[in-house]
Design a protein around this nucleic acid. Structure first.
Lengths: 138, 138
DNA sequence: CTGTGTGCAAACACTTTGCAGGTGT
DNA sequence: ACACCTGCAAAGTGTTTGCACACAG
């Protein structure tokens, strides 16, 4: 699937900035902060434009937010974000490595069912696991 | 346990600001942001002092950070933060209500064991559930 | 051509740092 | 008395807004 088609599928105009930002996310296994994006595009685009691009991508569901104690990051939504009935969800497992500091999605890990107290309704689950990743653990 | 003793137990000096901030957390079921604290103390203390107080409390383990998409909050560490061998941990379940916006700790909910892929070592788990809380769900 | 995206400037919000003076022990 | 805490001022960082122009459809 080309970048252009992906953007179209999300009803977004195809612009240079959006193409480059999306490419960046598709190429990265780890979650990227606004600063990462800005830096990796070596100041091709205004920081404001990057803020707006990220915001737009989150709104349409192309990327999703990832939170850890160091702040806000974004990650590309994989197929795992789509249920069979095409509903978008973000029941991700995010793993933050305490050694290299990278945060990534563990798409293969299932979140177990969680029993909430009476009266609570569950909509989404967000799981952040901290530890040592497979690369640093050798 | 008095505030004074609690502070002493964490090797902190007893000051007016620390007492008031700690009182606030003990009285609150929901997690508080820096802004909440500042507002509720009706500008009795400088915002910088509140920043430093929160930072100190986190460092000694009196409160812990709570993350959701709206930013950083803090919550008082309950007994649930202590394992039988007196190790401090933060394997909390945090619940954020999409209606009232409040985030609270669900101390009664256990985090199920999670199987990570080979090579990953787990240190801490942070679970955020979004949905509708018991108060709004009526 | 029309509506949307971009760049620039500026404002705004959030957080940290340095230092002088005050307070707890 | 000493170390630490606080308030103030200022700087640093991150993010948003307004507006004119450029570009995609």
């Amino acid at each position: 699937m080309s970048i252009k088609n992906t953007l179209k599928r999300y009803d977004l105009r195809h612009t240079s900035c959006r193409q480059d930002v999306l490419l960046l996310f598709q190429a990265s296994v780890k979650a990227l902060s606004h600063g990462d994006v800005e830096q990796q595009l070596s100041d091709q685009y205004d920081r404001v434009t990057i803020y707006r691009t990220l915001k737009t991508f989150v709104e349409v569901g192309l990327i999703h937010k990832v939170l850890d104690e160091d702040g806000l990051r974004y990650a590309h939504c994989k197929d795992a974000c789509q249920t069979p009935d095409h509903q978008h969800h973000h029941n991700h497992v995010h793993f933050k490595c305490q050694q290299c500091g990278q945060t990534s999605c563990l798409d293969s890990v299932q979140i177990p069912a969680i029993k909430l107290p009476n009266g609570y309704a569950q909509q989404a689950v967000n799981l952040l696991i901290e530890g040592v990743c497979v690369v640093c653990n050798q």
